[in-house]
Design a protein around this nucleic acid. Structure first.
Lengths: 135, 135
DNA sequence: TAAGGTACTCACCTTTTGGTAAGTTATGGG
DNA sequence: CCCATAACTTACCAAAAGGTGAGTACCTTA
């Protein structure tokens, strides 16, 4: 009897770590590595929000502005451009006046959003506990 | 016959979206929302790498420096402090000389790393395709 | 006595990121 | 003729992130 510490695994279960590629298995992420660049894009403040919004389906510029609350036009343009270059977002512009542009996820972007959504949901669900528990 | 476009779902499957909390279901992330803060911490450049490294188990300061290749001492200290305050990382300091400090994931941090690892692995696996496909 | 080891902190400076407000385009409507 | 509209671009400035190098603490070993 007496106090007993709660115990949980100290490393990830084998089946999860088994899916890690080689050079990553020891937790080392080489500095110049291309994956660092990609990781920066997809975990950027606005990148996450845009990908999340687009996981709800095709949307216009103005709709994206509304959903990623607080984003400036400059950052929206910049973020969309990066995601488009990365092949995660598809831009369809119709030659009408006033202009109409629809954004959607590519197949790759769609695949990614499947990983991003649980992460965002986790942050959303744990945010209050995390920030309240600080002295 | 002729050309046929590859088709994939344009929104996430119902069972995934069903796990999204209320206010998130329409893809809107309120600007002042606490989850924005938490999301920024866990998707920060160095935060991701530290959490990833720690998913391999308890590690010392110097070992973390090595694994998060390229990080400066200043940023390592800062990132660890944030993650510790957020209750994701546990710091155990031993009063010996020279000092010895071990860092590990808390239960909450461990839970999080289960979502982060697939994301990082995805970035690692797709990085070359993504960066090569740009003109 | 002096050097070495570990985990930091601090001050200073550079680089990157991001916001603001204005300008652009082309057309249809009043 | 002029304004509104949607989707941007640009120039300029402020703020935040991040790097560098020095300093600190304390004991052990040479």
């Amino acid at each position: 009897m007496g106090m007993e510490a709660t115990v949980w695994p100290t490393t990830l279960p084998e089946d999860l770590r088994a899916h890690l590629p080689e050079g990553l298995a020891d937790g080392v992420f080489p500095a110049g590595c291309p994956s660092r660049t990609v990781l920066d894009h997809i975990t950027s403040k606005w990148g996450v929000l845009i990908l999340l919004a687009l996981s709800e389906g095709e949307q216009r510029w103005s709709e994206l502005r509304r959903r990623a609350e607080g984003i400036s036009e400059k950052m929206l343009a910049q973020t969309l451009k990066t995601l488009e270059r990365d092949g995660l977002v598809l831009r369809k512009a119709q030659p009408v006046i006033p202009p109409r542009v629809d954004y959607s996820l590519t197949e790759r972007g769609y695949e990614l959003s499947g990983l991003l959504v649980p992460l965002v949901a986790w942050a959303y669900n744990n945010a209050d506990d995390i920030l309240n528990g600080q002295r």
